[in-house]
């Protein structure tokens, strides 16, 4: 455990910052915190339910469980913990199966973002010059592109499948993650350990992979988790426009089913329950991303 002081003189950071920051902040942030683990558990549950939905004891999400004598929708009960929608489809099952789509979309989005965005961002930040000009230009274009228009374009030209929706949102994640990667790379490249690696004879490729990547990956991941939340919400938004995946439930579609004003008043559970699941999932992703960022940040400033 590092002591609260060290012997570097003020030219690096002011003395009082060192003492106070080390004493208070770094010590406090040395763990990820209880909140992080709660968020992680929730995310874990949701992912597990979605991933293994076909093998878990959920009801069939597309089947109509009409009860004789009563008209759907049915409120939450023992046989339908989340209730059913107007077509007597089990909401718990639809939420679980819907998670498969929504979370896949989210994962693909961040995977694309981190891979392509990260690649472009790191190259732009490390080499600067023409690499930077080209990639930054690409980023700007991607950011200026109205996401809705892109989504409509793609879904009308191609099919409304999981693949195309994921791709669309993936493309939209590239620029934000890429820019963070670029900025982080620039700030690390200026630090002397990168210069040291070069003087030791390391080639550029080695420097990028062994020196920069481990450092850049962390803020990128933190952002990626946030991005996943955005992608999941974006899918829900697309569903409202009728632009989401055609087959099968998604969180957006499940929410949409119960979003009519009359339905919200009389049968609130249809929309509210999936909304709550969506909300907590995105909240957990955001929170976890933030905690990761500050955990690794704090470790660095505890110099």
């Amino acid at each position: 455990m590092s002591t609260a002081t060290d012997d570097t003189v003020n030219t690096i950071g002011t003395d009082d910052e060192t003492i106070q920051a080390n004493a208070e902040g770094a010590a406090a942030k040395r763990t990820l915190g209880v909140g992080f683990w709660i968020a992680a558990v929730w995310i874990g549950i949701v992912f597990f339910a979605a991933a293994f939905a076909p093998w878990l004891p959920f009801k069939d999400p597309d089947a109509n469980y009409i009860q004789p004598g009563e008209r759907p929708p049915y409120p939450p009960s023992m046989s339908h913990p989340f209730g059913t929608d107007q077509d007597a489809r089990d909401i718990l099952a639809r939420t679980a199966f819907g998670g498969r789509v929504s979370l896949t979309v989210g994962l693909v989005a961040i995977a694309m973002g981190m891979f392509f965005g990260g690649l472009m961002g790191i190259l732009a930040g490390y080499f600067r010059g023409w690499w930077d000009r080209i990639f930054s230009f690409i980023f700007i274009i991607l950011l200026s592109f109205p996401s809705l228009v892109l989504a409509i374009l793609i879904t009308s030209l191609l099919e409304r499948s999981l693949r195309t929706i994921s791709l669309t949102l993936g493309i939209l994640t590239i620029a934000p993650v890429g820019r963070v990667a670029r900025a982080t790379t620039i700030s690390f490249t200026e630090r002397e350990f990168v210069l040291a690696a070069r003087t030791l004879g390391a080639k550029n490729g080695r420097i990028i992979i062994r020196e920069l990547l481990p450092n850049v990956v962390i803020p990128m991941s933190a952002l990626a988790l946030l991005g996943m939340g955005v992608a999941v919400v974006a899918e829900a938004g697309l569903a409202f426009l009728g632009l989401s995946v055609e087959k099968g439930p998604t969180w957006g579609k499940v929410i949409l089913t119960g979003a009519g004003s009359r339905d919200l008043q009389k049968y609130p559970w249809i929309a509210l329950i999936p909304i709550i699941v969506l909300f907590f999932t995105v909240l957990a992703l955001n929170f976890a991303g933030d905690r990761i960022r500050s955990y690794f940040d704090a470790k660095e400033t505890a110099l």
Binding site: L195, L200, N215
Partner: peptide, 19 residues
């Protein structure tokens, strides 16, 4: 470069923080 090495001013920033 293997014959000429360099030592820098900022001791902490000269080392990869993740390694």
């Amino acid at each position: 470069r293997t014959q000429v090495q360099m030592i820098f001013q900022d001791p902490v920033s000269s080392l990869n923080p993740r390694r």
